[in-house]
Deep mutational scan, measured.
Amino acid sequence: KYLVLALYDYQEKSPREVTMKKGDILTLLNSTNKDWWKVEVNGRQGFVPAAYVKYL
Results as ranks from 00 to 15, higher is better:
K1S: 12
K1L: 12
K1G: 12
K1H: 14
K1M: 13
K1P: 13
K1E: 11
K1A: 13
Y2F: 13
Y2I: 15
Y2P: 14
L3N: 08
L3E: 08
L3W: 11
L3F: 14
L3V: 09
V4Q: 01
V4L: 15
V4A: 10
V4N: 01
V4R: 02
V4K: 01
V4D: 00
V4Y: 12
L5A: 06
L5P: 01
L5N: 03
L5E: 15
L5W: 08
L5S: 06
L5Q: 14
A6F: 02
A6G: 04
A6P: 01
A6Y: 03
A6Q: 01
A6D: 00
A6N: 01
L7P: 00
L7H: 04
L7Q: 05
L7E: 04
L7A: 06
L7S: 04
L7K: 07
L7N: 04
L7F: 04
L7R: 06
Y8R: 15
Y8W: 11
Y8E: 14
Y8G: 06
Y8L: 12
D9H: 05
D9L: 02
D9T: 05
D9K: 02
D9F: 02
Y10E: 01
Y10G: 01
Y10T: 01
Y10Q: 01
Y10M: 01
Y10H: 05
Q11Y: 15
Q11V: 14
Q11K: 12
Q11W: 11
Q11T: 15
Q11G: 07
Q11D: 13
E12G: 15
E12I: 06
E12V: 06
K13P: 04
K13L: 09
K13Q: 14
K13V: 09
K13T: 13
K13C: 09
S14M: 07
S14Q: 08
S14D: 13
S14G: 13
S14E: 10
S14V: 04
S14Y: 07
S14W: 06
P15K: 09
P15S: 12
P15E: 13
P15H: 11
P15V: 11
P15R: 07
P15I: 09
P15F: 10
R16I: 14
R16G: 15
R16T: 15
R16D: 13
R16Q: 12
R16V: 11
R16Y: 14
R16A: 13
R16P: 08
E17L: 05
E17D: 06
E17K: 04
E17H: 06
E17P: 05
E17W: 04
V18E: 01
V18H: 03
V18Y: 04
V18P: 02
V18D: 00
V18R: 01
V18F: 13
V18K: 01
T19Q: 05
T19Y: 04
T19S: 15
T19A: 07
T19G: 10
T19N: 07
T19L: 03
M20Y: 02
M20N: 01
M20D: 00
M20L: 09
M20T: 04
M20G: 00
M20S: 00
M20F: 12
M20A: 02
K21W: 09
K21D: 04
K21I: 08
K21L: 08
K21H: 11
K22I: 06
K22E: 07
K22D: 02
K22A: 12
K22F: 06
K22R: 12
G23W: 05
G23R: 02
G23C: 06
G23L: 02
G23T: 02
G23A: 03
G23Y: 05
G23I: 01
D24V: 04
D24R: 02
D24W: 10
D24Y: 04
D24F: 04
D24Q: 12
D24G: 03
D24T: 07
I25S: 03
I25K: 06
I25R: 06
I25C: 06
I25D: 01
I25Q: 06
L26K: 00
L26I: 08
L26Y: 10
L26H: 03
L26F: 06
L26Q: 01
L26N: 00
T27K: 13
T27L: 13
T27E: 12
T27R: 13
T27G: 06
T27W: 12
L28S: 02
L28K: 01
L28C: 08
L28I: 06
L28A: 04
L29I: 15
L29M: 08
L29S: 03
L29W: 06
L29D: 01
L29R: 04
L29T: 05
N30K: 07
N30G: 07
N30E: 14
N30Y: 09
N30F: 06
N30A: 10
N30V: 09
N30W: 07
N30I: 08
N30S: 13
S31A: 14
S31W: 14
S31I: 10
S31T: 10
S31K: 14
S31V: 10
S31Y: 09
T32V: 12
T32R: 12
T32L: 10
T32A: 12
T32P: 05
T32K: 14
T32I: 09
T32E: 14
N33Q: 11
N33E: 11
K34F: 08
K34N: 12
K34D: 10
K34Q: 11
K34T: 10
D35F: 12
D35R: 11
D35G: 10
D35C: 11
D35M: 12
W36T: 02
W36H: 03
W36C: 06
W36N: 02
W36L: 04
W36G: 01
W36M: 07
W36F: 07
W36S: 03
W36V: 03
W37D: 00
W37M: 05
W37G: 00
W37N: 02
W37F: 10
K38F: 15
K38C: 09
K38Y: 15
K38H: 12
V39I: 08
V39Q: 00
V39K: 01
V39R: 00
V39E: 00
V39G: 00
V39Y: 00
V39P: 00
V39W: 00
V39F: 00
E40T: 07
E40C: 09
E40Q: 09
E40K: 07
E40D: 09
E40W: 07
E40I: 07
V41P: 00
V41R: 14
V41H: 14
V41F: 14
V41Q: 11
V41D: 05
V41N: 13
V41W: 08
V41I: 15
N42F: 08
N42P: 06
N42M: 09
N42V: 05
N42I: 04
N42L: 08
G43S: 07
G43T: 05
G43E: 08
G43I: 02
G43A: 05
G43W: 03
G43C: 08
R44P: 01
R44M: 09
Q45L: 09
Q45P: 07
Q45C: 09
Q45D: 07
Q45V: 15
Q45S: 11
Q45R: 12
Q45F: 08
Q45K: 12
G46I: 03
G46M: 04
G46F: 04
F47G: 01
F47M: 09
F47C: 09
F47K: 03
V48H: 00
V48T: 02
V48F: 00
V48L: 03
V48I: 11
V48R: 00
V48W: 01
V48C: 04
V48D: 00
P49W: 03
P49A: 02
P49Y: 02
A50H: 03
A50W: 02
A50C: 06
A50M: 05
A51V: 11
A51G: 13
A51C: 10
A51D: 12
Y52E: 02
Y52P: 00
Y52W: 06
Y52F: 14
Y52M: 13
Y52Q: 05
Y52I: 07
Y52A: 12
V53Y: 01
V53F: 04
V53P: 00
K54E: 15
K54I: 15
K54G: 11
K54Y: 10
K54C: 10
K54D: 08
K54N: 09
Y55T: 15
Y55K: 14
Y55N: 09
Y55C: 11
Y55M: 15
Y55I: 15
Y55W: 12
Y55L: 15
L56M: 14
L56S: 07
